[in-house]
């Protein structure tokens, strides 16, 4: 029974990883940028939610009404101010620039908020749970996070498949110059993609802050989990990313159950390495390639 519980908790945790990962995946898919500051930007949003909810006495969910649009605006601006110029400098520049951004944000958070741990209260959701058996229970918060992740990833998939904007994104991803010939403003498409990516990252960061306590040093590890979810699932497939996140979450919780809590993250890393070694295109990529 404890094993089944571990798997269920892993699946729910995986939803959060997928939510972290979808913005990373979107940016990589559309403009081939791996945003190394993704985790730190998500954590920055977590701290913004913390500050707003503390100072205005709002619940973190209400603070999201301010932070999510804020994150999108920051993403839009970052694209024009930093990522577009870095794209002109060749393949290395976006990596170096986003790594620099990660260092700047991470250390600024450390200076402003000190290395202390903080947490966001999700109100009644934190304590509510469904007891399925005496040993298996699902917390309401985990379920809400998982549901939100499925909605966001599904919504993004629909956006890419069926809307004008989604077609513009896919066209730009395939060939930005040709897309511009037919009247698509590639820079604007990039900026919208980054705005969406940062909004999803902010949402993931907020859920992360509700699920567990956090401190300013955790940005890079969120980036790593997101990246592992993307690679395990296979690049370029949002459903693959969801499955990748779930597999990563299950690997961590089952690993913790089998070897002890300190081996949770290592177990996830080992799954990542195994996928890299034996199926480096990811679990879902082959199917995508035929489309």
């Amino acid at each position: 029974m404890t094993w089944i519980d571990a798997v269920i908790q892993g699946i729910l945790l995986g939803g959060l990883y997928a939510l972290f990962a979808c913005g990373l995946s979107l940016m990589f898919g559309v403009m081939r940028i791996i945003n190394l500051a993704h985790g730190d930007l998500a954590l920055l949003a977590t701290f913004m939610v913390l500050v707003i909810s503390q100072h205005l006495g709002l619940s973190p969910f209400a603070a999201l009404v301010i932070v999510l649009p804020g994150a999108a605006v920051v993403g839009y601006a970052l694209q024009y101010a930093m990522f577009n110029p870095s794209l002109r400098g060749g393949e290395l520049s976006p990596l170096l620039a986003t790594f620099g951004l990660s260092v700047v944000i991470g250390n600024m958070l450390l200076e402003v908020f000190s290395p202390d741990t903080h947490s966001l209260s999700a109100g009644a959701l934190t304590t509510a749970s469904w007891h399925i058996t005496s040993q298996i229970s699902i917390s309401a918060l985990s379920a809400v996070i998982f549901g939100a992740a499925v909605l966001v990833l599904g919504g993004l998939q629909l956006l890419l498949s069926y809307t004008q904007l989604g077609r513009a994104m896919r066209a730009t991803a395939d060939d930005a110059r040709t897309a511009e010939l037919v009247g698509i403003n590639a820079k604007r498409v990039y900026a919208i993609a980054t705005a969406i990516a940062l909004a999803t990252a902010a949402l993931a960061g907020t859920f992360f802050g509700m699920r567990s306590s956090f401190d300013p040093t955790l940005g890079p590890s969120q980036l790593i989990f997101a990246f592992e979810a993307v690679v395990i699932g296979g690049l370029g497939s949002l459903w693959g990313t969801l499955v990748g996140g779930i597999l990563l979450g299950v690997a961590q919780t089952v690993g913790a159950q089998a070897f002890g809590a300190e081996w949770a993250i290592v177990s996830g890393n080992v799954l990542f390495l195994l996928v890299l070694a034996f199926r480096s295109q990811g679990i879902f990529a082959a199917r995508e390639a035929h489309q």
Binding site: S93, G100, N107
Partner: peptide, 16 residues
């Protein structure tokens, strides 16, 4: 950590 913030900022500026 402020000096690390500075290092990161210089890295961004030099790259761009």
């Amino acid at each position: 950590s402020w000096y690390l913030v500075g290092l990161g900022a210089v890295a961004i500026a030099v790259t761009l």
